[in-house]
Design a protein around this nucleic acid. Sequence first.
DNA 1: CATATGCATAGGCATCACCTATGGATCAGA
DNA 2: TCTGATCCATAGGTGATGCCTATGCATATG
Lengths: 305, 305
Amino acid sequence: MLSLHQLTCFLAAYEHRSLTRAAEELGYAQPSVSEQIRNLEKSLGVPLFRRVGRGVVPTTAADTFRPHAEKVLAAADDAQRAVTSIKSFETGTIRFGMFGVARLYGGAGLVADVLERYPGVRVELVGRHSRDVQEDLRRGRLEAAMIAVAGLASEGMAVTPIARDELVYISADPERLKAPVTAKRLADATLVMPESTYRDVDSARIVLRRMLHEAGLNPKTRIEVEDVETAVELVGRGLADSVTQKGVAVQLLPRLAPKAGWVPLRPRVYDTLAIVHRAGATLSPAARLMIELATQRIQAIIPPA
Amino acid sequence: MLSLHQLTCFLAAYEHRSLTRAAEELGYAQPSVSEQIRNLEKSLGVPLFRRVGRGVVPTTAADTFRPHAEKVLAAADDAQRAVTSIKSFETGTIRFGMFGVARLYGGAGLVADVLERYPGVRVELVGRHSRDVQEDLRRGRLEAAMIAVAGLASEGMAVTPIARDELVYISADPERLKAPVTAKRLADATLVMPESTYRDVDSARIVLRRMLHEAGLNPKTRIEVEDVETAVELVGRGLADSVTQKGVAVQLLPRLAPKAGWVPLRPRVYDTLAIVHRAGATLSPAARLMIELATQRIQAIIPPA
DNA sequence: CATATGCATAGGCATCACCTATGGATCAGA
DNA sequence: TCTGATCCATAGGTGATGCCTATGCATATG
């Protein structure tokens, strides 16, 4: 079986035309190098050196073999360097899970942060929705993620809360923003809600359902849309009201629904943003980097949990 | 320490996304592959797979590492193939020692034989004179050679006689070719001899000196030249006579000295052509090939020893 | 001819690669 | 929800391998 070590010994011996000299260079005893060369010759089936009393002389087979051996070692070096540069974020890909509305909390800025600090890296922010991200985490396709969690209990996962994002009521009707919105008023409102595909598993929905359920009420949503922007725009046109994360309201209302405003719920309810990864896993430097940066950004917008 | 074996295991595991499957493909037990991967990760300092309950999932580091690993193994394959093709004479260099006048015995045809049978090989016929060739053999720069030897004794060398090349007297004067030339007549003749640089070690000279010495005579050479062709031309012009190998006479006289002819010496003396290599050495296939072909060619011209 | 140099061999020790057996975690199906 | 199957990790044992020191043999050098 060919080995890199044999190639190293071969090249040293070839260059020095001496096993003893090669052994010195490599820091081994002479018989060790001798053995490596012998094994290499055996596995190749061709003598590489003629033992001529004092010193060794490469055969033409060795002449032919040498550039190939050098290429192999160079490739091996390359491979190691590639990984080393990953460790120091000089290159490689950083894949991090984030829920869909993460971009509203500065997802683009987060990516920019990473790219600026580490010009060589690729960044992937994956996961349209917390639900998908959780699935990816469970399957091991993702190492870590920042997602919204309704409850803190998640099977086999380590969940580290980062921030509490309050859910607020948004409306284009100033009348409805004069006082905090109770469960009863919420149940009576005409609501547009995003994440229609994930209506059953969306953490904001779960929190709201829980709130209404405690008041003995059933939620009924008038309009279901897929993305938050659309929901906010509909609110801006006065076609419906909605409930969304305060961070989202702050980010989107001025742009998409200038006439609309927001008011807290009563009682106040919160969505929890958390770092999630498999319980017991040792996080890679890349993951830790993303967690640190993402946490900073989030907490700059909404208060820590 | 990085090893090719680790890379093989890594690639198998990467492709199958399973250590068990990789082990099956490679014909090992599962823990063996597991250990190789673990060692590879340790030596790289980066985890390559996330162990996720059932199965393993490559990290982005593994994604980056994979093409490099493939390149290393491909280069290693190349290296081995290169040597294999040397063994079967598909490529590589065949270096063989031959004395200077070998070309007169079909040296060019010998090279042509090799090139025709093995289109990929390079051929080197080295050694201007037997003396140089012997030195190269002694130093290990040559594996084997066909040379002219005066005596059969050569320190530490295995000498296999191939052919006996008779030394003959050549002259442009028909009178001097009527009868075999004795030592006495030889001592009286005006002679031109080649190989002036090697006059002391040239085997033909040695044989002649021996012959004259036994007759109580001293050799005196009128003209010294370096190459055989010049000597033969001078004979052709009648300026001197010479002694040369019968094979040379047959090859060169018609071309360079049409009016000259040759006659045996009395007693007859012979130069010996022999295969020479270091005693106890195992000859490579390339060397054996050259020996076989060279022997055929020589024996087609002059009788076997 | 004596000495120095360089490779091969022998013998011993530590490490490594591989094996089997087993335990823990997860996934699929009853 | 429980059970069996699957898959990885760990443990412990065995043989091979790598490396060492000591030594012998051949060759080059003064």
